[in-house]
Every structure is written in C-alpha cells, then in structure tokens.
Amino acid sequence: SDFTIRIGDRTLHLKNVSEEILKILEELLRRGIDFEELRKIVEELIK
C-alpha cells in the first residue's frame, strides 16, 4: 500500500509498503524518531 509521512514541513512518500514495514515505521514515529533517521531507515528497507 502507499503511505505518506509528514513531519513538520517535510514529506516522505512510500509506495508498495508492506503492513509489517508500516507497523515498524509507526512504532518509530511513536518513539519520536528524527525525520532524517526515519528517511535513512526507509531507504534501507525499500532497497
């Protein structure tokens, strides 16, 4: 499924993301992860 994360004025667009990855990202966001850290993790996950 497609997913968009907005943190402040920044946006991260994800396409064809599995439910498992979404759950991980949601947990990281709940813990207050930094946007740049989140972006790096996402890039690793979707390689």
Rank of each mutant, 00 (worst) to 15 (best):
I41S: 06
E27M: 06
L14G: 00
T11W: 05
L38F: 12
V42K: 01
V42I: 10
K47W: 12
F35Q: 05
L14V: 09
E43G: 09
E20A: 06
I46H: 12
K47L: 11
L25H: 00
L45D: 06
I46V: 13
D9I: 02
S18W: 01
H13A: 06
D9G: 09
K47A: 12
T4Q: 11
L12V: 06
E43K: 08
K23A: 14
E27G: 09
E37G: 09
T11V: 14
L22T: 14
K15H: 13
V17K: 01
I41G: 03
E44L: 07
I41P: 01
V42E: 01
L29D: 03
H13V: 14
L25E: 00
I21K: 09
G8F: 03
G8A: 02
E44I: 09
G32H: 08
E43D: 14
S18M: 01
I24P: 08
I5N: 00
I24N: 11
T11P: 01
H13L: 06
I46L: 15
E26M: 09
E20N: 09
S1L: 15
G32I: 03
I24C: 10
I24H: 13
L28K: 07
G32K: 02
R10C: 14
D34C: 01
I33M: 09
E37T: 12
L12G: 00
R30M: 10
T4D: 13
R10Y: 13
R6C: 15
E44P: 06
K47E: 11
E36N: 08
I33A: 11
K40M: 12
L25Q: 00
D9M: 03
H13G: 01
I21Y: 09
K40S: 13
E27H: 07
E44A: 11
F3A: 06
D9H: 06
E43N: 10
I21F: 14
L29S: 06
R6H: 15
S1A: 08
R30P: 01
H13I: 11
K23F: 14
F3L: 14
E44V: 10
L22G: 12
R39L: 15
R31C: 06
E44W: 04
I21S: 12
E20P: 15
L38V: 08
R31F: 06
I33T: 12
D2W: 02
D2L: 00
L12K: 00
E44R: 07
T11D: 04
V17N: 02
E37C: 03
F3N: 02
K23E: 11
H13K: 06
I46S: 12
L29F: 04
D34L: 06
L14N: 00
V17R: 00
E19Q: 11
L28D: 05
D2Q: 01
L38M: 13
E19W: 07
E26A: 06
R10D: 13
I24D: 12
I24Q: 14
L45P: 03
S18D: 11
L12D: 00
E19V: 12
R39K: 15
R6Y: 10
R10I: 11
K47H: 14
I5M: 01
G8S: 01
R30F: 07
I21A: 12
K40H: 14
R31L: 10
I5L: 03
E20G: 08
K15P: 07
S18K: 03
L22K: 15
K15W: 05
S1M: 14
D2Y: 02
L22I: 15
E19I: 12
V17L: 04
K23G: 15
E36R: 04
R30C: 11
R39H: 12
E36Y: 05
I33V: 09
R30K: 12
D9A: 04
G8H: 03
I7M: 06
E43S: 09
R31S: 08
K47N: 14
H13Y: 11
L25D: 00
I21L: 11
D2P: 00
L45E: 07
R30H: 12
D9C: 04
G32L: 02
E44M: 07
E37W: 02
I7K: 00
K40E: 14
T4I: 15
